[in-house]
């Protein structure tokens, strides 16, 4: 097996497993940049996966065919935002502990999704969908020598959408007045308030966007990877996205890079047995790599990662 064959095996797989992580991690960037910790990403992603699976299934019944997954993405984003609004109300308006509220979101999403699955389908999982996002070659780009084969052949459209959305998020956060306001609320809410920025409103927008993107991440996972929703569809991807966001230093493009890197680790842990040289590395090292690296990054051993200053503290007007 030549080196190119190995890359051709791993890189598309890495990009596929990275896409849901990218969306969810970008959601995390919005929420945490506005100053609200979002441990609930896992639950939001899980509920997005459930919503996606159900919508695609019924979309197929109604004859939406190939459009079903795309409809499900929109529905999952709306449902995700609604679900995140619980976290927003609790942690912004009611000044609950944001971590506790996030933990509750995870419990609630897991319980409710399986409860509804059992209620609707009378089974522990949703039916397997037939309209998945299918692999395709990107026209023209796939003809580029070397790069075309690695990056643009046999790839899912959603993966490119993920990269594109990351660029948009970067533009919005760093090149628009809205982005400046959102970040300022997360760094120094009192100063932002003095400048006439509505702190609560910005934080609500941040959390709702995080719900929408995490929901999208879950739905993309169902449409491109798992094909249905069970209790074990989303087990830790949300937390891995959280890790990617931190490893990416709360920056959209950093999160993108980290999610791609974690996707690569996952891809190697799955297909590593076929690759000479990697067969001998125990799989466990690849499985734990994302988490170990995140801890090292936080400890400052792999570049210092600093959280937004006001992260985790509810804002109270007039409080010193």
């Amino acid at each position: 097996m030549s080196f190119m064959d190995i890359l051709a095996l791993i890189i598309p797989a890495a990009i596929v497993s990275a896409a849901p992580l990218i969306f969810t991690a970008l959601g995390g960037v919005f929420s945490e940049r506005s100053g609200v910790v979002n441990i609930g990403l896992e639950g939001l992603m899980l509920f997005g996966a459930f919503t996606g699976a159900v919508t695609i299934y019924y979309g197929e019944q109604f004859g939406l065919n190939g459009a079903a997954p795309w409809v499900s993405f929109v529905v999952a984003m709306i449902v995700g935002a609604l679900f995140a609004s619980i976290h927003a109300v609790a942690s912004i308006s009611l000044k609950a502990d944001q971590v506790v509220s996030g933990v509750a979101i995870n419990f609630l999403a897991a319980g409710l999704a399986i409860f509804l699955t059992k209620k609707i389908f009378n089974a522990g999982q949703t039916p397997v969908i037939s309209e998945r996002i299918s692999k395709s070659n990107i026209p023209y780009l796939s003809d580029i020598p070397v790069i075309g084969k690695l990056f643009f052949t046999n790839a899912y459209l959603t993966s490119y959408l993920a990269v594109f959305v990351a660029l948009i998020v970067w533009y919005v956060l760093y090149k628009t007045p809205f982005g400046l306001r959102l970040r300022s609320v997360g760094e120094h809410p009192m100063a932002a308030d003095t400048m006439g920025i509505n702190v609560k409103k910005m934080r609500y927008i941040g959390v709702l966007l995080s719900g929408a993107l995490a929901g999208l991440g879950g739905a993309v996972y169902v449409a491109s990877i798992s094909g249905n929703f069970t209790h074990s569809t989303i087990t830790g991807q949300g937390f891995m996205a959280l890790a990617a966001m931190i490893f990416g230093k709360w920056h959209p493009l950093g999160a993108l890079g980290a999610a791609l890197f974690f996707g690569l680790a996952q891809a190697i842990s799955i297909s590593g047995a076929q690759i000479p040289g990697l067969q001998d590395i125990p799989k466990v090292f690849l499985l734990i790599a994302p988490y170990v690296l995140t801890i090292l990054a936080l400890a400052g051993l792999v570049g210092r990662a600093d959280a937004p200053k006001a992260l985790g503290t509810p804002y109270e007007k007039g409080k010193r």
Binding site: K95, A96, V100, I105, G111
Partner: peptide, 22 residues
């Protein structure tokens, strides 16, 4: 009733304790 309902109830209880403000 699926047992998961109790998971939902527990989650709600956490919420309300966390939102003791409410």
């Amino acid at each position: 009733v699926p047992t998961e309902l109790i998971g939902v109830v527990i989650a709600l209880i956490i919420f309300f304790v966390a939102c003791s403000y409410l």
